[in-house]
Nucleic acid binder design. Sequence first.
RNA 1: GCCCAGGUAGUGUAGAGGCCUAUCAUGUCGGCCUGUCACGCCGACGACUCGGAUUCGAAUUCCGACCUGGGCGCCA
Length: 429
Amino acid sequence: MRQPIADITPETKAAEITGWVHEIRDLGGLAFYVIRDRTGIIQATIVKKKAPEAVLEAAKAVSRESVVRIAGPVKAVDKAPGGRELIPETFELIARAETPLPLDVAEKVPAELDTRLDSRYLDTRRPRIAAIFQIRSTVMHAVADLLYREGFISIQTPKVVAAATEGGTELFPIAYFEKEAFLNQSPQLYKQMMMAAGFEKVFEIGPIFRAEEHNTVRHLNEATSIDVEVSFADHEDVMALLERLMKNAYEAVFERCAPQLETLGVALDIPETPFPRITYAEAIDIAAPRIEEDLRFGDDLGTAAEKAIGEEMGSHYFVVDWPTAIKPYYAMPYENNPELCRAFDMMHPRMELSSGAQRVHLHDLLVEQIRAKGLSPESFEFYLQPFRYGMPPHAGWGLGAERVVMTMLDLANIREAVLFPRDRHRLTP
RNA sequence: GCCCAGGUAGUGUAGAGGCCUAUCAUGUCGGCCUGUCACGCCGACGACUCGGAUUCGAAUUCCGACCUGGGCGCCA
């Protein structure tokens, strides 16, 4: 019976393992085969004078990264990795790896990200890369878990849509029989319609598509969005939810992924809640004297400004009370000061992670704001109609899953946080 | 969309007009090696993205194409 390699201890009597040949060190009369599965590595030691002929034959035929099955007694040996080694009685070559390998899994020679992504299936055999995705899985589990615990309903909305959500960002056009269609840039409008549908608390974790020709370490053309929408809630309520969710995700990783964090050399700091809140006006005041470019009230916070404020804040924080003019039409203006709205961004010092708002739930105001952005309400009719038949007040946000993982693990490039990234140039694998 | 940088063995690199039949490492193949853990030693194999131009001579300079990385804008 196959055993996970990590389960084999110096006390284990005998074991059968199946895994990949990580390294081969043939000293002549003695050979070491380092075998790896997803749980760890173990050394199989072959003493050529004593080993069965069939073992010698199979061992000679294997190449690095071949899949093998090895069974035999386990010996406690101090000088072996993990304090134990396996003495093969049987050694079976299950699937031979061709040579040369497209990249070095044992990491003696580095590989560029581009090379790694071309052979992602080999790249992910490297323990530190596998650790990233085990942690990502834990984050996604923790996120969904918290939302279910808090009574959210998971929804799935269309990714093929007829129109833009917000204007602004570019959409990927696709052929949809005789009609024009696009890939969805955000589930925003559908989440809101589910408020009219009476679901009260919904979330969706799914892909979003942005056809921007950006070429940076923090943008993807296909990203994973963690989206929530809550009825009878204001922006403060959903900011508090976002804080709970972030803290929960960090705690889950801290508790359940200690080996992976160690592999990555990451000392995880669980962010303290509540996150500090600064207003947009304060953000401008912090950034303006620290950056070269001219920055005034009403401008978007550019990369330089974000960086300057991030250095000042030091950890996660919210920027609140944005000018209505630079936020989407669905953000609710303050009644007593409609120049500002109940929108927020949740920031990590390195970059924006989330943006959200209390939404406009009043039909006429929404139409007015759509017009004010130069968009035509007619093309949003499917979205606007629910606002005429009892739309509750509501609020929500979207959180970039890759950015959470990237900032959590201090990855240099967002592509590291995606198995098969889609960027300006990459469409395969 | 604008701007910058870059394409050399499977992988990561050296190279700045003749010293290049191209460096080093890793890898692969063969040989030696009984405690390696980046095993060691000996030998072999394997590369200048493509096209054009300049030049006696181009990996190196110039032009174009293709491919790639990054910055900005915008955003998650």
